[in-house]
């Protein structure tokens, strides 16, 4: 089932094009938005989260159009959003912060609201930190709190902007487990510039570059983009754009086959680099 439909979405900041004619359909499960910094990921997410009005094009979230004020509220009732810089009030306790966001999400009945705050605290495993001030939480806990506020009200669409950035490997694992659990019955859209995140938890990948969508598919298909273009060679290749030496002392080359090189199975990262290379070439050609 399609949760989000985007058609011809464009957004400019002065002379800078952040989004250009983006078309997209997103359904239940975890979708990863992959791309380098400045690719337009955040702008797209902010438009979907109703934090930003696009210049042209249309968005539908469960059929509601955020460009129409009355329907925008309906969209907001159905989304949970974790911005890249959530700015959680440092002097609030974990509980108070969630209580406050729950009020913003129209939970006016005190008893119901408290039950909901308890539920999300439990879901992100922060129950024992309910009385801790935000400024005393570790980075990983703060990120989980950010996720918890997005989950208040059990939204159908959860939008997470770079949720794993700045987390150490252990926290990253915990966070991935959380997100994949959340994605079991909801639509989760997260942006990242880490291919490991995508491989580990996304059912679908959208690759963006220069404000455009350059790929849409599953992680296996993304790896498949580099099919027949990845090689292992004993010597440093000449004239190849992308290569590096791996742990076995072999050179992993993407692109033309170097003399005497063996074909290698492409990874998600290979596919991603391949796409970015192509996108850059297209950019220059234009």
């Amino acid at each position: 089932m399609t949760t989000v439909t985007v058609r011809g979405l464009s957004k400019r900041y002065g002379s800078l094009t952040a989004l250009e004619a983006v078309d997209l359909e997103i359904g239940v499960g975890v979708t990863g938005l992959l791309g380098p910094n400045g690719a337009g990921k955040s702008t797209l997410l902010r438009c979907l989260a109703t934090a930003l009005g696009p210049d042209s094009g249309s968005i539908r979230v469960h059929g509601f159009d955020p460009a129409v004020p009355a329907q925008r509220t309906e969209v907001r009732r159905r989304i949970g959003y974790l911005p890249q810089n959530p700015g959680l009030y440092p002097n609030f306790t974990t509980y108070d912060l969630l209580d406050y966001v729950a009020v913003l999400k129209e939970m006016t009945d005190t008893r119901q609201r408290r039950a909901e705050v308890r539920r999300v605290l439990d879901e992100v495993e922060l129950t024992d930190r309910a009385k801790t001030k935000v400024r005393k939480l570790s980075g990983g806990m703060r990120q989980r709190l950010g996720l918890a506020q997005a989950l208040l009200g059990d939204p159908d669409l959860v939008i997470l902007d770079e949720p794993t950035v700045g987390l150490d490997p252990e926290q990253r694992m915990l966070f991935r487990a959380l997100i994949s659990r959340i994605g079991e019955r909801r639509t989760v859209l997260l942006s990242t510039h880490q291919t490991e995140d995508v491989g580990a938890l996304c059912e679908r990948v959208v690759v963006m570059s220069g404000g455009r969508v350059v790929f849409e598919g599953n992680p296996r298909e993304l790896a498949g983009v580099a099919d027949g273009q990845v090689w292992l060679s004993g010597n440093p290749p000449e004239g190849s754009a992308a290569y590096w030496r791996n742990a076995d002392g072999l050179y992993r080359v993407i692109g033309q086959r170097p003399e005497g090189a063996e074909a290698a199975r492409p990874s998600i990262e290979d596919g991603y680099l391949m796409l970015l290379g192509r996108a850059t070439i297209a950019e220059v050609a234009r």
Partner: peptide, 15 residues
């Protein structure tokens, strides 16, 4: 003035 503005501003109470 509000560091949490982006969260506040995308809730149904915003506006």
């Amino acid at each position: 003035v509000d560091p949490m503005h982006e969260i506040t501003g995308t809730t149904p109470s915003a506006g």
